[in-house]
Simulated assay, not measured.
Amino acid sequence: MAKARYKTKQMTELHTFLQSVQGQHVTVQEIREYFKDREIAVGTTTIYRQLEKMVKEGLVEKYVVEGTNSACFEYIGESETSDYESCYHCKCEK
């Protein structure tokens, strides 16, 4: 029997946001600003934790900017695969 996936309100909010910007690269700072503007309480650590979980599940791609610790994330969806090269003209400078 498969274990049911535990979903918090913050996880649901993050997933909904990422779906709304599918195909775009976003940073954790941009995600925090989005939630702050809407008065949704989601901590930075929670955002990172949930993004890393989504990366492992194949829902999100993570792009690390060379020479820095900065990263941006792209929601690719549940049925998409990441067999393609992403464009590198986005604000994360990849």
Rank of each mutant, 00 (worst) to 15 (best):
E30D: 12
Q29H: 09
E80Y: 04
N69V: 01
G23W: 08
K9N: 03
L59W: 12
E74F: 07
L14G: 07
Q50P: 08
E39P: 04
V65P: 06
Y34P: 09
V60K: 02
G58A: 02
M1P: 03
G43D: 06
E13M: 09
Y6G: 03
M1I: 13
D37R: 13
G67F: 06
Q24W: 11
Q29G: 10
S79L: 13
E93D: 15
M54Q: 08
Y88T: 15
M54A: 02
V28L: 03
Y75W: 11
E13R: 13
T8K: 04
I47D: 04
E74T: 14
K56Q: 13
E80D: 05
N69D: 13
H89G: 15
T8A: 06
Q29I: 01
T8P: 12
E78V: 10
V64T: 14
V26Q: 00
E61S: 06
E74W: 01
E78Y: 11
L14Q: 07
Y63C: 12
H89R: 10
S86E: 14
Y63E: 15
M54T: 09
V28N: 04
G23T: 00
Y75D: 07
K62G: 05
T81A: 01
G43R: 04
G67V: 10
E57D: 14
V21P: 06
A71N: 01
E93M: 09
V26G: 01
T68R: 08
S82E: 08
Y6I: 06
G67N: 10
E66K: 14
I31N: 05
Q19G: 11
V64K: 15
F35I: 05
T16N: 11
E33D: 15
E33V: 12
Y88C: 13
D83E: 12
D37Y: 01
K36A: 15
F35Q: 11
Y84V: 09
A4Y: 08
C90L: 03
R5K: 14
K36Y: 10
T46K: 04
I76L: 06
H89T: 09
R5G: 03
E93P: 02
E52M: 08
R38L: 13
R49W: 00
E66Q: 11
E74D: 09
L51Y: 05
K53Q: 12
A2E: 07
A41F: 05
I31P: 01
T27L: 10
K9E: 08
F17A: 00
V21A: 08
T16F: 03
Y63V: 08
A2H: 08
E61M: 10
T44F: 02
M11L: 13
T46G: 11
S79W: 09
H15S: 11
H25R: 06
V21M: 06
C90E: 15
T44D: 13
H89C: 14
T46N: 03
F73T: 10
